[in-house]
Design a protein around this nucleic acid. Structure first.
Length: 257
DNA sequence: ATGGTGGCCCGGCCA
């Protein structure tokens, strides 16, 4: 089962690129973030034409998350059932092909002295509680999405450029480590222990061509999925060409017993 | 040099 995640930075602007990517990458499950669409605008029909069911949680201009699946889509739930949901449409979950799949768009902290920064830390803390309440770490589960955290220094193009910045701060990394301590594995990193590969590049300044990016799009899987992973990829091709998202897709190939 | 690019949707926010 190929499980993918992609922050598309507006599905309205990106639908053709997403359709193209699905056609050649053939994901079984695709988690999307930043659709920037209301539920009524979500193109279920376009995905149905490709053989996929889909579920979306969005309210229009900001955020918006979805799961697209050709291996079943059941027990869909949205939000985390808390006051954190008021902050935005940032989480959707479903059963797909025997695994629980969660698509998340973690809030951007903006800056260490910005009120959005502690809100981001709280959201990540709440996510761990949500996992405790809704599943367990011995089940096949993948939490996929834009975490807006680079787990380690090797996940950014130049750590010295990020001194005092969000995405790399110790509290953010600690919050991510707490999620992993719950029982989740950063599957891409396990597959490629030493590679310095990125999933996001700023649109500005030719960052992509200068290899100035960050790895902030992650697939965090429970051990039962992680140990059965045969392949993982960050698909840089999707960051090239006409009207790319500033993020590129990440996927893993795994199986459910 | 505190810029720059792109998406929202048309002034300014957000990433």
């Amino acid at each position: 089962m190929r499980i993918a995640t992609w922050n598309v930075n507006s599905l309205t602007a990106r639908l053709a690129r997403v359709e193209e990517w699905i056609a050649y990458a053939q994901p079984d499950v695709l988690c999307l973030q930043e659709t920037k669409q209301a539920d009524v605008a979500f193109p279920h029909g376009a995905f149905a034409a490709l053989g996929y069911e889909s579920a979306h949680h969005g309210d229009g201009r900001w955020n918006g998350v979805a799961i697209i699946s050709r291996v079943g889509l059941d027990r869909v739930s949205t939000g985390m059932g808390s006051e954190h949901d008021a902050e935005g449409t940032r989480l959707i979950a479903a059963d797909c092909g025997g695994a629980r799949i969660v698509s998340v768009y973690v809030p951007n902290g903006r800056a260490l002295d910005d009120p959005h920064y502690p809100a981001k830390l709280a959201w990540l803390g709440r996510l761990r509680e949500f996992l405790d309440e809704t599943t367990s770490s011995d089940q096949p589960l993948a939490v996929c999405g834009d975490f807006n955290v680079a787990p380690e220094d090797r996940d950014v193009w130049d750590p010295s450029q990020f001194d005092g910045m969000t995405h790399v701060s110790e509290p953010e990394r600690a919050a991510l480590a707490e999620l992993e301590a719950w029982g989740l594995v950063d599957v891409f990193r396990r597959c490629y222990p030493d590679d310095r590969l990125f999933s996001w590049w700023d649109y500005r300044g030719g960052s992509f061509h200068r290899h100035r990016g960050m790895r902030i799009d992650l697939i965090l899987a429970t051990e039962v999925l992680a140990e059965r992973t045969s392949f993982a990829l960050i698909d840089r091709q999707a960051r090239k060409g006409e009207k790319p998202s500033d993020h590129t897709p990440v996927f893993i190939d795994t199986s459910v017993e």
